[in-house]
Design a protein around this nucleic acid. Structure first.
Lengths: 249, 249
DNA sequence: CGTTCCTTTGAAACCAATCAATAATGGTGG
DNA sequence: CCACCATTATTGATTGGTTTCAAAGGAACG
């Protein structure tokens, strides 16, 4: 599924995609992923509001971060893929601000935030790299905000599908247009701010328009260009600038 | 308006609120704010899609970051207050992903991103601090995502008002319950994903319920507790943890 | 092989958008 | 200082996308 070797960490894999890492940098990142824990689909890794000073790295599998409203409604805030850093809200408050749930079976590593502090001190270039990936996430979240705030159901779901496609392509360049979305229609609704009923109708409509094709939860993007225009989508994950980083050492 | 002295930078002011800074750290931050430029309300500082390797610090005034859809609709992504770092998307792509517009007259400083790279290398503790404030912004944006995705007009506007209140209190502890929102109702709509017409009706409704009071664009939060419950609001700006930071030096 | 979860479909209700027009407000130049 | 103009706020009537409610197939799982 991923191109990771037995020794490389998922974080190294992802960051290396953007910038060749020095051995010392690889070591520092590997260190963050020493402990590994396995979870089954639907398992909850941490729950919103729990005390925690730990961060998590996805080694394999899909997860999502979500929050619940008083009335029981749920909003899925972000999807997590291999190489992603999760639970960063514990950085600021020592308390999680979202529930992290396994979408598929997955393997994750966790480490205390103080370890990140040490890395910031000793690895200036990695710190810049982490800051950059964070800023990528932030812009991607802005895109979702625009999607929820100003577009209709078709465009919201198109945005979701295109973002997943972009992100999967980072670690799997061979991926063309078909992938298993794993999410239920209720999940898609919680991610896009729609009801599961309307998600169903909208998926059918996208299908009828020839934009996508579905077999169970496996989706094929049939007309990516039309989808991109429909959703006003911009790929935030293909490339990032690293030329401004401080030199290594 | 702010408690800034003539010499202190707005960034120092804000970060100092969370953690006492060392002289060398203050100097490093001051350096980022050497150049100052003044803008009038409604001026555009940078436009979405422009090439840029610069970051901006707000010294005084209000601004907002927004993005436009193909059909002309606009989504306001974030409000910027004194001490905020703006234009961080140029970090990742050397290109701005949002238009920054002055809401009020304001003074801002700008510097090239490479300067941030140097700071990451030499000031590990500041790097951790910047990463932390970024993570605060990220959680606040998640809150907005939840607001747009899963709550009605009343709750969305309540969320906006409460967030502004929280953020103003960081630099102005004396602020109780009244502030000038500056934004037009069309702006509020662009921030909350509503039309200006519905914003007007909803503000009137909040007024009628005794939750707020309005005089022009000056808003008084009459029942903060009820607003917090209505919006399911959590203050993300009051305090952050700094105990995990690497030691200075 | 039943049970549970998920998907699909239909009808009715509703929140917010749209369309349209009128009052306020604020800034500007004479 | 006031008339004028542009922008903003307010209000009403109508439309529409999405939700809600309800229920029937399908698929997955123990």
């Amino acid at each position: 599924m991923t191109t990771a070797t037995a020794t490389a960490s998922a974080l190294v894999d992802k960051l290396n995609h953007y910038m060749p890492l020095q051995p010392a940098e690889r070591d520092a990142l590997d260190w963050l992923e020493r402990g590994r824990r396995r979870f089954a689909a639907h398992d909850v890794i941490v729950r919103e509001g729990e005390i925690s000073d730990r961060l998590y790295v996805v080694r394999s599998g899909w997860l999502h971060a979500s929050t619940r409203l008083r009335n029981g409604d749920r909003q899925i805030l972000r999807l997590h893929f291999p190489g992603d850093l999760m639970g960063t809200s514990s950085i600021a408050w020592g308390e999680t601000s979202a529930t992290i749930t396994a979408v598929t079976d997955c393997v994750i590593s966790d480490f205390p935030r103080a370890m990140l502090g040490r890395l910031f001190k000793t690895q200036g270039r990695l710190a810049a790299m982490l800051y950059t990936t964070f800023s990528v996430e932030s812009v991607a979240m802005s895109d979702r905000l625009k999607s929820l705030g100003r577009t209709d159901a078709k465009a919201r779901i198109a945005t979701l599908l295109l973002e997943v496609l972009s992100r999967l392509r980072v670690t799997d360049p061979n991926l063309t247009d078909t992938f298993d979305l794993h999410l239920t229609q209720a999940d898609i609704g919680d991610a896009t701010g729609l009801t599961k009923v309307h998600v169903n109708r909208t998926l059918k409509e996208l299908d009828a328009c020839g934009l996508i094709e579905r077999h169970g939860r496996v989706v094929t993007i049939r007309d990516e260009q039309a989808m991109v225009e429909l959703a006003d989508y911009k790929d935030r994950y293909g490339h990032v600038a690293t030329d401004w980083f401080p030199p290594f050492g």
